[in-house]
Write a protein that binds this DNA or RNA. Structure first.
Lengths: 141, 141
DNA sequence: CCTAACACTAGCAAGCTAACCGTTGACATA
DNA sequence: TATGTCAACGGTTAGCTTGCTAGTGTTAGG
């Protein structure tokens, strides 16, 4: 039974990503790009790239390309950091903030549909499981 | 709280994949290639590519490349199907079967480490959540 | 002056869609 | 019965995105 777990998580992740990509397609934004904006907004603007990558639990090179596309679309800005000339501080543009409303609305709708029929207790338990796994992963190297 | 869910699943999936890839690296096999072999073994040999893709819940072109690499490594075989000249029937080679023991042993160790501290009830609940989500996803288009 | 840190580049793996080739099967019609 | 057409199907290719590691250049700081 436990052996099904890794396959099941992966399936759910793929499926969710696929459906969200489909629904955001006409806006020219993907699931990964949208998440990047969400994390940036939540983390508070002015984060450096390293901080954001760590918040998202992805590697820096992965983030670099996501930011490239978002910057090219005019949704975020990389500003020079006065204290540390190596670093860049990240900000949503006004267009980016406006965009977020539409994007988040669609993501919320999908989320409600995907989690339909599940109680708060079930979701909470799943989140506990995820947290424990991440702690276990952290512990080893 | 529910809004954390999609981010949390994705994080766990990425992390798990990363760790398994790391541990299988010296054998020249990745997480995705190993899963392919697992599904093939479980689904019973002689599956067609379409059947296996559907079992794995991935798209056909994705599977094609996984099979290309596995075939090149001599771990599986694509045999012609006598009834339908379009189709190929998939089989593990003897080398593939031998390999599976080592691969699965390592995957099992990782799984135990990742799920440490979690009760069967918690895991069962998480699997229920995953199943419900997949049903919800199925329902719409 | 040397090491560590930040962002970036290059290149691989694996997910996806769209478009293609050959085969199959059904169905209309000669 | 035989044949012509045509849609559907299995597998593949091409090309995009996003995950990763390894390696580079510049800057900071002991």
């Amino acid at each position: 039974m436990r052996d099904q777990f890794p396959f099941a998580v992966a399936r759910v992740t793929r499926r969710w990503r696929k459906m969200l990509d489909e629904r955001l397609k006409d806006l020219g934004v993907t699931q990964a790009r949208w998440s990047t904006m969400v994390y940036l907004q939540e983390g508070g603007e002015g984060l450096t790239q390293r901080e954001l990558a760590s918040l998202m639990a992805i590697e820096n090179p992965t983030l670099v390309r996501l930011l490239d596309s978002l910057e090219q679309q005019g949704l975020i800005e990389r500003r020079l950091c006065p204290n540390d000339r190596r670093a860049r501080r990240l900000h949503l543009t006004d267009a980016g903030k406006d965009f977020m409303e539409e994007l988040s609305a669609r993501a919320d709708v999908l989320r409600d549909e995907m989690l339909a029929g599940l109680s708060d207790a079930q979701i909470a338990n799943a989140l506990d499981v995820f947290n424990t796994i991440m702690e276990n992963a952290e512990q080893q190297k």
